[in-house]
Structures are given as C-alpha cells and as structure tokens.
C-alpha cells in the first residue's frame, strides 16, 4: 500500500492531472479575449508583366506585382490605374490580440477574386510573423513576397480583386483563431499587360 512504487505512482498521477487542468484552463481563458482590431487597406495600383512558368520554361505565364505600403497615419486614396505599383495603406494596431496565451500572430495579405467561369481564387501575396506586442502596430512598405499568378496564366479579362489583411492568432496552448484586420473598400481591377522595356 505505502510502497515507494505506489507513492511515485500517486504523485505523478496527481501532478499530471493538475497540469492538464491548468492547460485546459489556460486554453479556455483565451476564448474570453475577443479583440477584433480593424485598420484600413487601400490598393493604389497593380503591374502585370509577362514571364515564364516555373516548371515549364517555354510556357508563358503572367505575373502581377503588388507594391504596398502599410503605414501609420497616412491613408492613400486609390490612384490611377496607370501607376505601376499597388499601395496598400493601413494602420492596424493588432496589439489587443496579444494576451497571455498568444505565442505569435501570423499576418497575411491575400487577394480574392472570382473569374468569369466561377472559379474562386484566394492568393496570399505577403505575410509576416509578429512575435511581440511591441511589433503589433503594423507599419511597413513592401512588395508582394510570393508570386501572384492566375490559373489560366493570364490576367486578361479577370474581374477586379479584393485585397484583405488577415491574421491567425497562434496560442501557447489551445485553439488557433483567425480574423480579418482590413479590407479594400472596393475591388481593384487588374491592369493591362505591360511588356518589359
């Protein structure tokens, strides 16, 4: 009854149930934080250039290039289609998303459009990992990190796309949650193909 084996057994069982209860409590507690921060996002322009497909070097493929500017304060209006950059401007302060169970935020900027055949597309063109609350005021200038291409290899006759900044809150323990921080007020049209030089 009071052997060392029994004592070890009881102690470790008690400890592990305590740890489990604590972890469950922490995971449930993060459901009580319901921050939903919002910013604005505006796209200035897009550039479409011809190129070659990645796998098949002789296959033509068009690429869209998106320059955006996520910055504090300034809010750019949508400029003319002739301008050859996309400016996405927003000031989302995502620090309310950081609570005691937030390990990191995964931010991503995605383009959403449905083509005329009804194929719905969602393409992530930029992302960022935010690990500290101090870095959660998003203010940056950049261009798309990932290639933006269309399934049909061409952006001709593709309807305008919506751009949105979304986040994934990743906890130390528990459930992963998702949300949207900003979205372009109107869909942004793709420009005509530009040839290089």
């Amino acid at each position: 009854m009071h052997t060392i084996y029994a004592r070890i057994n009881n102690t470790s069982a008690f400890l592990s149930s305590c740890v489990t209860a604590l972890l469950v409590a922490i995971a449930l507690s993060s459901l009580a934080f319901t921050a939903d921060p919002k910013g604005q996002l505006a796209v200035a322009s897009i550039q479409v250039h011809p190129g070659n497909a990645r796998r098949y070097a002789n296959k033509k493929q068009e690429f869209a290039f998106v320059n955006f500017n996520v910055s504090a304060g300034t809010h750019l209006v949508m400029s003319a289609r002739a301008v050859s950059h996309v400016h996405a401007c927003s000031k989302p302060d995502l620090s309310p998303l950081f609570n005691w169970n937030t390990k990191q935020l995964f931010l991503y900027l995605s383009a959403e459009y449905t083509d005329k055949k009804g194929v719905a597309n969602e393409v992530v063109i930029w992302d960022r990992i935010v690990r500290r609350k101090e870095d959660a005021l998003i203010s940056t200038t950049g261009r798309n990190k990932y290639v933006f291409r269309e399934l049909s290899a061409s952006f001709r006759n593709i309807p305008p796309a919506n751009y949105s900044l979304k986040y994934n809150v990743m906890p130390y323990v528990g459930v992963l949650t998702y949300g949207e921080a900003a979205r372009t007020p109107q869909p942004v049209a793709f420009p005509e193909l530009q040839s290089l030089s």
């Binding site: 055949k117 009804g118 719905a120 597309n121 969602e122 393409v123 992530v124 399934l151």
Partner: peptide
C-alpha cells in the same frame, strides 16, 4: 504547412 493559394471549382 500553411495554405498559400486556393482555387475553388476546378
């Protein structure tokens, strides 16, 4: 891994 692109209905 994380989903980067989705194309629905193809």
């Amino acid at each position: 891994h994380r989903v980067l692109e989705t194309h629905d209905g193809v």
